[in-house]
Design a protein around this nucleic acid. Structure first.
Lengths: 291, 291
DNA sequence: GCCGCGATTTGATGCGCATCAACTGGAGTG
DNA sequence: CACTCCAGTTGATGCGCATCAAATCGCGGC
């Protein structure tokens, strides 16, 4: 356990991790980082596969490295609702519970960083900064989930489609936060299938198709292909979503962006290979004292 | 700060707290308990009053001692959704954020235990067992929120009403967990107005009225008065809700119930005037050690 | 280049439930 | 005791969207 051989190899895997700065790992102290590396392994899962079945044992947790996971819940008669999508850099699984309340499935081909749940919990118990980070992301997820209740409860299907496009755009804007190329920021990209989108927005593929083409016809968007849409009239789209501008704030899901002074100047782009030395140092020095 | 005068008085207030064993405070070590007592105060708020407005500064957090809070979100055109109800013993507010994403309002006359948010955060930072408990309840809330997405996205209005009755029943059964009187367990009690219920279930008071009377006509429930319903055919109600039996597990919201061995036999009833002496003792001796 | 199959689009129809409106009943008031 | 007033009930109507059905597109395989 305490040999410095295997861990070191694992840690180098983390050094090459594409989403390291966006995951819960980003706040881990050196010791915690090593512990996490020791209990984690990467795993590829093709689209459609189930990672954790509904009500199954909550055996593992982890981070999404690439691709998208869907969390679903199915009624006895077969009706299904996607209750959440999990993007690269985001945490998945159900800590501190024997079973998972929802199914976790690969919505696209995915690459995961997987950990045994109990091992993860043990690492968290020894590293308060991890527990704190987990709490922060869970609180954000909760606010996001409640925002989606508003979507499902109050917004009509056109407003839901408009909102989805705005959210995709928001994600895009964050990815290219410091890139000057404006055209990237105007393109909403949907990584999931139309079927999944329909389930996520609680409507049908036919209705989505109609609304997308309606938005195209009135000049609000341009359909590049079935999964990419250029937004030509942002303000119009916002108006059609029925949302207030400040509500979009909640949709900035990338965990470690825009949340307080922890990562003051995050100049690394997710795909960038630069080692975020300064960022790490800042993170460690600005932590709240636990004991 | 370290004088033992004022704190002692505050602490006695906590000793008389009706919901103490169900709140986050229940896991607090003695030192943390004193710290929480020092920064908290009770406050009564009449039904309809706003405690925290939507997007307002997240100045306070706290626990509900009596009554029900509603969390709402309103669209620019006035459409409103209740995204959560907060019952006695449950935590409210938004830690670790400058603003609240939702409005917190008194759905009934309420009694609150209120704390300055930053003071609360400071106490949590010094007491890891509190942070852990906060994480556990937040994870439960998140699962509950996602379950409600299923309700809003997949279930029709009759199924939503049936589900609500089942949830009320579930709450009741927990309150009277060890009481032999079976009749209490068969009565679903709704503390909120029909208008709030309509918003919570994302439907209208007319539709709720129709379904309630339909359920009464087919003999599934008996209408005692407009807020109390005796469930005559539990299995039928479950079938009409469209849910699987195990889904109800999620609705056991009372934070410290049914989660491990912390509260083995809670025989105190919230509304009862008996002092739950034994309960308090049991709680302290059976609490789990963190760290 | 042709075929076949799934994904998407477009059209026609029906139903669930919101909406509007009228009525009822009980609690509080002068 | 009539009064108002609000919560709840009941009925009539219309609309949004699911559903069913058919056409079209796109793409990999041979």
């Amino acid at each position: 356990m305490f040999e410095s051989d295997k861990p070191h190899i694992d840690n180098s895997r983390c050094d090459r991790c594409a989403v390291r700065d966006r995951t819960v790992c980003a706040v881990a102290h050196l010791a915690a980082e090593n512990e996490l590396a020791r209990v984690s392994r990467t795993r590829r899962v093709p689209a459609g596969e189930t990672i954790l079945a509904e009500n199954a044992e909550a055996s593992i947790v982890g981070n999404v490295l690439a691709g998208v996971l869907r969390m679903t819940k199915t009624l006895p008669d077969g009706r299904e609702q996607i209750v959440g999508l999990i993007n690269p850099g985001e945490f998945f699984g159900r800590p501190y519970s024997e079973t998972v309340e929802f199914a976790y499935e690969a919505a696209t081909d995915v690459e995961l960083c997987v950990m045994d749940r109990r091992s993860f919990e043990a690492v968290v118990a020894r590293n308060p900064e991890l527990e704190h980070e987990l709490l922060l992301t869970t609180l954000d997820d909760l606010a996001f989930a409640r925002e989606r209740m508003l979507l499902l409860g109050c917004q009509n299907t056109l407003e839901r489609v408009a909102t989805y496009l705005l959210v995709m755009l928001e994600h895009r804007e964050q990815l290219f936060a410091d890139v000057a190329l404006q055209e990237h920021k105007r393109v909403a990209v949907s990584a999931i299938t139309r079927r999944d989108l329909a389930s996520y927005l609680s409507t049908t593929i036919e209705t989505i198709s109609r609304h997308i083409h309606h938005l195209s016809r009135i000049g609000v968007i341009r359909i590049i292909d079935s999964s990419r849409f250029e937004v030509l009239a942002y303000e119009m789209l916002l108006a059609l979503s029925g949302l207030a501008r400040e509500d979009l704030r909640l949709f900035r899901k990338a965990p470690l962006f825009g949340r307080g002074p922890r990562l003051v100047a995050l100049n690394g782009i997710i795909q960038s290979r630069q080692t975020p030395v300064l960022t790490s140092v800042k993170t460690r020095s600005s932590r709240i004292g636990h004991f």
